[in-house]
């Protein structure tokens, strides 16, 4: 059913720390790996070893440059982006077949691939580009929040988190219940001023992003500078003679 639930019992989602992310793309690869080998249609690549490789991914890392208005140096921010499991998910309500749905029990937005007609309308409706039509299976692919890991009792307990979170070497990705204000992720969002992407779209994303911390600025207090001031502006010795001789020639600049 593609009507959205009015509330969900839990709001499972990710908190992504833009201060900590080093842009290594390990989350992209672990996501592609897990979601190709496990639940749903594999994430296909086309022309993988040719001149124009394309493929479906559920998580991609952009990089942005932020140039401050003052003279401070620009900073580079690595920006992982995947489905934000919005409370008011526009991708769900546009689906004509009911293949797209949001779960009442944990708020995860999923696609029932056997009911998907591959019309692509949900990908158009998503402002974040979180959905990609698989080039081989022709069904819509999106982040499942590794629903086949987080409840999987065959996995050791530490592995029962999304593959991207498990693999992140920098600890920039956090998984938890954002509907519970006492949870570790909610506390993190409160402490660090976590924010929504495109809040003006009214999608009410569950996933939050933590802003990069302000960068340290080197103060221009060089105590040795006065002692290192140039002793003379004019050259000495042979170069000094050459300079004076050339300056004496007609046409030389004053």
């Amino acid at each position: 059913m593609t009507q959205l639930p009015t509330t969900t019992t839990r709001k499972l989602g990710l908190v992504i720390d833009l201060d900590t992310c080093v842009g290594c793309h390990a989350c992209v690869i672990s996501c592609k790996g897990w979601n190709t080998e496990n639940y749903g249609a594999p994430l296909a690549d086309e022309d993988a070893y040719g001149a124009n490789p394309v493929g479906s991914f559920l998580n991609r890392v952009h990089s942005f440059e932020v140039t401050p208005a003052d003279d401070a140096p620009p900073s580079l921010v690595h920006f992982p982006k995947s489905c934000l499991h919005c409370d008011n998910a526009p991708c769900v309500t546009v689906c004509p077949t009911g293949a797209s749905y949001k779960r009442v029990e944990d708020g995860i937005v999923l696609v029932n691939e056997s009911a998907c007609i591959g019309c692509g309308l949900c990908a158009w409706a998503c402002p974040y580009g979180a959905r990609e039509l698989d080039p081989r299976e022709k069904v819509m692919k999106k982040c499942t929040l590794c629903v086949d890991r987080i409840y999987n009792e065959n996995l050791p307990e530490e592995d029962r988190v999304p593959a991207c979170v498990r693999t992140c070497p920098a600890g920039a990705r956090h998984f938890g219940d954002l509907g519970d204000s006492e949870s570790a992720v909610s506390q993190l969002v409160a402490q660090r001023g976590g924010f929504d992407l495109m809040p003006e779209m009214g999608t009410q994303p569950v996933n939050k992003y933590l802003p990069p911390r302000p960068k340290d600025q080197l103060q221009e207090t060089d105590i040795l500078a006065p002692f290192l001031a140039p002793v003379t502006d004019t050259s000495q010795g042979f170069l000094g003679w050459l300079d004076r001789a050339l300056s004496a020639l007609p046409g030389a600049k004053e």
Binding site: F64, E65, V66, P127, D196
Partner: peptide, 26 residues
């Protein structure tokens, strides 16, 4: 607003992939 990055002008520095993808084509 798409990135939520503040404190200066935001510029796309590097895309996530060297080629194209479904999002760009569509």
């Amino acid at each position: 607003s798409a990135t939520g990055l503040q404190g200066g002008a935001v510029r796309a520095f590097e895309p996530p992939h060297t080629g194209t993808n479904y999002l760009l084509r569509e």
